[in-house]
Write a protein that binds this DNA or RNA. Sequence first.
DNA 1: TAGTGGTCTAGACCACATT
DNA 2: ATGTGGTCTAGACCACTAG
Lengths: 244, 244
Amino acid sequence: MADGSTHEYQKIIDYLGGKIATGELGVGAKVPSENELAEQFGVARMTANRAVRELVHRKVLVRVKGAGSYVAPRRYDQTPVEILPISEQVRNGGAVYSASVRILEERPLISEVAESMHATSGSRTFYSEILHREDSIPIQLERRWVNPKVAPAYLEQDFLVETPTEYLIRMVPLTRVEYCISAERASADLIEILQLRAGEPVLLLRRKTWSGLDVVTMVDLLHPGSRFSFSGFFESGLAGERVG
Amino acid sequence: MADGSTHEYQKIIDYLGGKIATGELGVGAKVPSENELAEQFGVARMTANRAVRELVHRKVLVRVKGAGSYVAPRRYDQTPVEILPISEQVRNGGAVYSASVRILEERPLISEVAESMHATSGSRTFYSEILHREDSIPIQLERRWVNPKVAPAYLEQDFLVETPTEYLIRMVPLTRVEYCISAERASADLIEILQLRAGEPVLLLRRKTWSGLDVVTMVDLLHPGSRFSFSGFFESGLAGERVG
DNA sequence: TAGTGGTCTAGACCACATT
DNA sequence: ATGTGGTCTAGACCACTAG
């Protein structure tokens, strides 16, 4: 009841959004029905309907006709360049996915990363370095720094079962993603790790992810330029095509 | 129920969307008011309101309280990696933008491009090659093939005033965009044109754009790897932050 | 002042799912 | 049979813009 200045449907959106953001309503949880919300907020059913409909539009909720409304699974495709877990990308292409965890340890922050993570240099950080392969050929080197406050059990995970991205999305709701895609000259160690040919550039996606005010993770996804690209499409739904 | 299976609000959406897609309602045109639509379709005002509200959500319309609803300017940020005209990107960074048109002519399609454009090799095409500079330093080489059927006056444009992207968006509504970002070794001509240093990679964005069933244009945007990157962010609007 | 969008109401009918 | 979402109605009040 902090601010009563907004509209009724907005109050309901804030109420449900808050319950979901704090985890009180987890993924798959059933949300109060329109009639319950209408009664609870002392409002007409159409008003509750509008609130829920907007949350469906934002993909926060899913509705099943005749059954109820539920908290939608968290999306991991927030980044413009749609970021599926690399394992799915490889398998979708009909290839065999494999990976090896090269490093998984606690590390002091190096100053360059600390700046990016808005943290004090020298504070604790989890670091992982995983090499992802497509048909045994390196396709991505994932260098990741993780905020221990957000994922204290990060070092105990088995990332051959669940990728770090999937794990972190499951742990905390993401509220902000920053990304930067660039092309780099390959350093000596990358040439060896990614098995690059002479002069082959590296395609780098750097991503920083937030949950509320906390930086959750910063990751460099390094790809061999000759064997990887980011691609996708966009369709604007006007006449002739329905938006899904 | 005689005239079909769709819903009333969907009929109104299709009606307005059609008028806009065909250009009958151009950018900035005033669309019928909710009361007019309600009367015209024989529905309650709330139903017309929902239709218009959904088109606003899709950024097809903009509404001004007390005044009316209008056709929104066409977006050019459809691509996941938000594609502002390069001139704006440069100026937003406080630098001086300049460009030179290196090539602007009719060309037969080369087979590689023809395949991408779903066209017969040897058919007519417009080709332009423009070098964009930031503070006199090359920042993007734009190599573009254009479908003459869609933009017959393409060769007569002055692309130092309006970029090809802006011009084409103004001419036809875009319905589909495909993109692919990759890192490439620089060829000899690119090293010279983009003034690349030895071993510096090229960051390439290839984009293909449709209007309906026609390919409008295919473009390669080639950037010096050391001086350019694609970046952006995404925010999920739940508690604490309002979506703009 | 008249028209517009923005919101809200208190009903209603339907198709569907669960029990 | 009951409850759910999906849609729709015929009113209403308000804040705002324009002539």
